[in-house]
Every structure is written in structure tokens, then in C-alpha cells.
Design a protein around this nucleic acid. Structure first.
Length: 289
DNA sequence: ACGCCCGCCTGTAAGC
DNA sequence: TGCTTACAGGCGGGCG
């Protein structure tokens, strides 16, 4: 569900809301959301008593940094980062305290010393949480180590981007969604980026002119930046909510995603939906070549 | 190397 | 009013 703009919105909320707070209690319901562990205990002890010092984002991953434990060494289970991936339906929600009604599918609850809570809610349970060290993160957690560049964090020239495109012979949409190539883009934003670049989803990555490379690079940055300004996209089911339970606003700006049959905002011809790999792709056949 | 399919889950909406 | 099917922001693995 959440892609880079949604995860970045939550990151900024967490930055304001939980950084500086100390965890005084950890409740876990079941092992599904912490499936790297055989029991709850190591996960709970890795978090209990720790203070949150910063929240970073790598692609769609949230990295909740924890303060050092006095005298601890790596390997004692005292990791220094809580990694959160929201999967399709994961939400991080702030609660003022334990009295607030617990939503169905609440899997993890962190209670802070000041009394507030951070709750992890995830109906489809594709998301996960685990604690590790920053060192393991870089070298031993493969899905994070192999992440591609972050389009909003990592500076790159569009000519470098063009050279990366040239080394692949993949359809543009598949490549934009490949986390090992570029981190954070999923089904919604790949469609929006490709419309804004005026390119079809099935163009081969090595077929672009230099002008098209530049358009694609600009569209990628600008679309994601704009989506962050609008606090992400919430579709009809409103599964994406920010830390305060508020929906995003960017869906009203979508040019193609979830607009099948509606008029293209640029040329007025109907937006088309095609299936690929079981996933929906939306495009304007006139504006995208 | 690439593209397509499946499975992992639950919830909702559409179709009959 | 059911019941069944399709589909949903992700991702990894397997197969051709």
C-alpha cells in the first residue's frame, strides 16, 4: 500500500511525535508481524527502555533509531534500529493512551514513559517489524542492502540516470517498481510518473532519447515531491492513514491512477486500464508514447 | 535477464 | 438476501 510519499509523510509525523520519547512497555499480539523472531521476548527486550532518537526512511522502509544501551555490545540483542515495513495495509497510529479503543488487527503497541502510545495496525499482515543494528542493516539485511537509490534523498544527474536505464532492457513500469533499481515507487506512483513523463509503461528502458530520459527523471522527482506535499494518496478504502489517522490528499491530483474511463486531464480522451502481472496499470493512450 | 504467475492475508465491493 | 468471485498501495520465489 504505502509507497514513498506515504512512508515519508509518516516519517515526518514520527519525527515530530515520537522522537525523544522513551519506550516503557511493548505489547505484541502474535508473531506474524514480527516473523523474524521465534518468540516475542527478544523483540520486546530489544525495545523496552529505549529512547527513540531519530526516524529515517530508505525507500519504503522506516528506520526508527534507538539510543545506545549502556555497556551493550552488538550481538547481545541490543539493536539500535527498529525497522518497519508497512506492506500493503500497515498503519502506524499515535494513541494518547491505553484507554483509546484498540482497533482490530493491532499487532504491536509501544507505550512511552509520558503515557502516549505508538500502535502498529495491519489487517493483511504483509508488513513486518524487527530490531537490528545499523551495521547489520548495511551488510546483512539483504532486502535493505540491495535497495536502489532514493529518488528524494540521493542526488543524481539525469545523465547518470540515463546510463542506468541503458544498462537494462526492462519495461519502464517494471523498472520503476523494482526496488533494487530505485527505492520507494509502487503501483500508483509508477503510473503517475509515466503519465507526467509522457511515456508508456511498456517502453523498454534502453529505448529512450536523451530528452525522454530527462522528462522521466524530472517527472519522478516532481511527482513524488508533489505527493509528499499532499501527504500521500488515500484510495476509496482509506487504508492509508497518517500517524494521526488522517487521510492523504494526493488522490485528487491523480492524472491516471484509479481514473479508468474518466477524461485525461490533458487531452480529454478516456483513461485506459490494462492488466500486467495481475496488477492494474492506468494510462492515457494519446499522451503516453 | 526478463516477464509472468503464485502465495502470503483480510476486507470490501461487485456480480449472480 | 445470500453466496462466490475479483481485487487491493508489496514482495519474494519459481518457472519458462
Amino acid at each position: 500500500m504505502p509507497e514513498l510519499p506515504e512512508v515519508e509523510t509518516i516519517r515526518r509525523d514520527l519525527d515530530k511525535e515520537v522522537v525523544g520519547k522513551r519506550i516503557k512497555g511493548v505489547d505484541v499480539n502474535g508473531l506474524r508481524s514480527i516473523r523474524r523472531y521465534k518468540t516475542k521476548k527478544p523483540f520486546i527486550t530489544a525495545l523496552d527502555g529505549r529512547k527513540i532518537t531519530a526516524v529515517q526512511r530508505k525507500g519504503k522502509y522506516l528506520l526508527v533509531r534507538l539510543d545506545k544501551v549502556q555497556g551493550a555490545t552488538d550481538g547481545n540483542g541490543h539493536g539500535d534500529v527498529l525497522v518497519v515495513h508497512l506492506g500493503m495495509s500497515g498503519q502506524l497510529l499515535r494513541a494518547k493512551g491505553p484507554k483509546e479503543p484498540m482497533l482490530k488487527h493491532t499487532h504491536v503497541v509501544l507505550t512511552f514513559t509520558q503515557g502516549g502510545q505508538l500502535r502498529y495496525v495491519d489487517p493483511r499482515t504483509f508488513g513486518e517489524l524487527f530490531v537490528t543494528t545499523m551495521d547489520e542493516l548495511e551488510h546483512q539485511v539483504p532486502e535493505l542492502a540491495h535497495l536502489g537509490f532514493d529518488p528524494l534523498e540521493d542526488v543524481m544527474s539525469w545523465t547518470d540516470f540515463g546510463e542506468m536505464l541503458q544498462t537494462k532492457q526492462t519495461k519502464l513500469k517494471a523498472l520503476l517498481m523494482d526496488q533494487k533499481f530505485v527505492a520507494g515507487i509502487g503501483n500508483i506512483y509508477s503510473d503517475e510518473i509515466l503519465f507526467n513523463a509522457g511515456l508508456r509503461y511498456d517502453r523498454s528502458s534502453d529505448s529512450l532519447t536523451s530528452q525522454e530520459v530527462r522528462r522521466l527523471y524530472r517527472a519522478m522527482i516532481e511527482t513524488l515531491q508533489e505527493a509528499v506535499k499532499h501527504r500521500g494518496s488515500s484510495l476509496a478504502d482509506e487504508q492509508y492513514k497518517d500517524l494521526f489517522g488522517e487521510v492523504g490528499d494526493f488522490q485528487s491530483q491523480h492524472k491516471v491512477y484509479d481514473r479508468e474511463g474518466e477524461a485525461c486531464r490533458r487531452c480529454r480522451s478516456p483513461i485506459v486500464r490494462v492488466k500486467l502481472g495481475g496488477r492494474s496499470t492506468f494510462l492515457c493512450e494519446q499522451c503516453q508514447v
